[in-house]
C-alpha cells in the first residue's frame, strides 16, 4: 500500500523550477533514501512532502488524503521531520526537548501528563538517551544531539519519519549509529522512513528503495542493486565508478574519475 503518493509535483522558488513534475510512491513500512547531486532538489522535496513548502502544481497524498486537508496538529501526529540544521536554546535539557514532541497532542486547556511521560520515556529509551536525559542539549556530542532530535520526532509517534541528511555533520561511527537507529525504528516500530542521504553506499545498505534525483526530476527509483549502475553514476553524478559487491550481495560504488560529460559541462560553463 502506498502510504505517501506524489503526483506531478512542481515547485517553483524565485521563478526557478526546483521540482519538475515529479511523481513518486512510498510503500508503508519501507525505508526510502533519496540521493542526487547538490541542487537536484532533495531537500526541497522533503520540505514539500512535510508541507513546509507550498507546491506550484501537483498533489501530495498521505494515507490517500490530500496533505493540504490535514490540520497542523493532525499532520504532526502522522509525520515527523528532522531537518538538516537544528538549534535548541542552550540550557534546554534532553528530556525537555523530547517533550516538545508531544506538542501536537496537547491543548492549552488539556494536557495528558501521564501518557506523555510514558511516551517520552519510551522515546528516550529507544534512542539510548535515558541516562543523560537531564543534561542540557548543548553539552552533548554531535551524535547524541542528533539522537535527541530523533527522540523528539519519535515522541510525536509518527507513522512516517522524514530525515534530511541526518548524518552530515557526524564522524563515521556516529553516522553508522544513527543509520542503525533509524533501521531499528523502522523494523521494530514499523515507522516508514523517507530520508535524504549524502553517502551513496549508506543509502544502499540502509534502505529498501533508493530514489535518484536529477535537476528536480526523478531519474530512477527501485531496489539498490537495480539503481546503482555505472550509467546512472555517469549521467547523474558525473563520475565514472566501479560497482563492486559487498558480502551481503549489495552494490558498492567506488568512484574512479570525473566522467567526460561532466568535464564537458564544466568547460561549457566556463
Amino acid at each position: 500500500m502506498a502510504i505517501l503518493s506524489v503526483n506531478n509535483l512542481t515547485i517553483i522558488i524565485n521563478n526557478k523550477r526546483i521540482i519538475d513534475k515529479l511523481s513518486l510512491n512510498v510503500e508503508a513500512g519501507k525505508i526510502l533514501s533519496i540521493i542526487g547531486p547538490n541542487g537536484s532538489g532533495k531537500s526541497t522535496l522533503i520540505k514539500a512532502l512535510t508541507r513546509s513548502l507550498k507546491p506550484f502544481a501537483g498533489q501530495i497524498e498521505l494515507f490517500e488524503q490530500n496533505i493540504r486537508s490535514y490540520s497542523a496538529n493532525k499532520l504532526a501526529r502522522q509525520i515527523a521531520v528532522l531537518h538538516q540544521k537544528t538549534q535548541a536554546p542552550g540550557d534546554l535539557s534532553v528530556r525537555d526537548l523530547v517533550a516538545y514532541g508531544r506538542f501536537p497532542y496537547q491543548y492549552w486547556w488539556k494536557e495528558n501528563h501521564k501518557e506523555d511521560t510514558v511516551i517520552i520515556d519510551w522515546a528516550l529509551a529507544e534512542t539510548g538517551l535515558s541516562l543523560i536525559a537531564d543534561r542540557p542539549v548543548n553539552t552533548l556530542s554531535g551524535g547524541e544531539q542528533q539522537r535527541a532530535w530523533i527522540a523528539m520526532a519519535l515522541a510525536q509517534q509518527p507513522r512516517v519519519l522524514f530525515l534530511d541528511e541526518p548524518t552530515t555533520f557526524l564522524d563515521i561511527a556516529h553516522q553508522i549509529e544513527i543509520l542503525e537507529l533509524i533501521t531499528s525504528l523502522n523494523k521494530q516500530e514499523g515507522i516508514t522512513v523517507v530520508m535524504v542521504v549524502h553517502d551513496m553506499n549508506h543509502a544502499v545498505r540502509y534502505s529498501d528503495i533508493v530514489a535518484v534525483m536529477q535537476r528536480g526530476k526523478l531519474y530512477s527509483i527501485g531496489q539498490p542493486k537495480d539503481i546503482i549502475t555505472p550509467a546512472m553514476l555517469r549521467d547523474v553524478f558525473g563520475v565514472e565508478a566501479d560497482i563492486l559487491q559487498d558480502k551481503a550481495g549489495q552494490p558498492f560504488c567506488v568512484p574512479t574519475k570525473l566522467s567526460a560529460n561532466w568535464i564537458a559541462g564544466r568547460e561549457a560553463a566556463m
Binding site: T50, R51, S52, S71, A72, N73, K74, L75, A76, R77, A80, V81, H83, T86, Q87, A88, P89, Y100, G101, F103, P104, Q106, W108, A153, Q156
Partner: peptide, 23 residues
C-alpha cells in the same frame, strides 16, 4: 502566561515548530 508553551516551541525555530504542528 497561557502562551508559554507556544513560545517554547517557537524558540526551536520555524521549521521545527511547523513540524510540531504549530501554526
Amino acid at each position: 502566561f497561557l502562551s508559554a508553551s507556544y513560545l517554547n516551541v517557537l524558540s526551536l525555530g520555524d521549521e521545527v515548530s511547523r513540524g510540531l504542528g504549530l501554526r
